[in-house]
Amino acid sequence: MTEIIPNNILKIQKKLATLQKDSRNYKKYTKILAKHIKTHTMRERVKAHIKAIETIQSLKDE
């Protein structure tokens, strides 16, 4: 299973790389990036839970 980084996170990281550290925009983009990463990890965690529940249900049915 390969981890795929979403395009929106990559785009924010590329923009962040061009900005000067400790500038106002740098701080703004780090907050935006943190929010996107948080939602992405939560989405992945929910998918994993759903997959685990489906696996348990299929084992019960057999």
Rank of each mutant, 00 (worst) to 15 (best):
P6R: 13
K47Q: 14
T30S: 06
R24K: 02
T18G: 04
Y29L: 13
N25G: 02
D61C: 03
Q57T: 04
I53C: 07
K27A: 03
I37Q: 10
R43Y: 15
K21I: 11
E44L: 15
I4H: 15
L33Y: 01
I53E: 11
L16R: 02
K35L: 10
S58Y: 06
A17C: 04
T30Q: 12
I4W: 13
I50T: 12
Q57A: 09
T30M: 07
Q20Y: 08
K31C: 06
K28S: 04
A17M: 05
H49C: 12
H36N: 14
K60V: 04
D61H: 10
K51P: 05
Q57M: 05
I50H: 11
N7S: 15
K27L: 06
Y29N: 08
N25S: 05
S23T: 03
L16K: 03
T55E: 09
H49T: 08
M42Q: 15
Y26K: 02
N8S: 13
K60P: 00
K31H: 07
I53H: 09
I37F: 05
A34Y: 05
L16P: 01
E54K: 13
I56Q: 07
R43I: 10
A48T: 06
I53R: 08
I50G: 06
A34D: 05
R45Y: 09
K60T: 03
I5V: 15
I56W: 07
S23G: 02
I4M: 13
A48P: 00
T55W: 06
S58T: 06
R45I: 02
H40D: 09
N8A: 13
Q20M: 04
T18P: 00
D22Y: 12
E54I: 03
K38H: 08
R24H: 02
K35H: 10
T41L: 14
M1A: 12
L33G: 00
E44F: 04
E54V: 03
R43H: 15
E62W: 08
K38P: 00
A34N: 08
E3W: 15
E3M: 13
Y26D: 02
I32D: 06
N7C: 11
K60W: 03
I37M: 03
L33V: 01
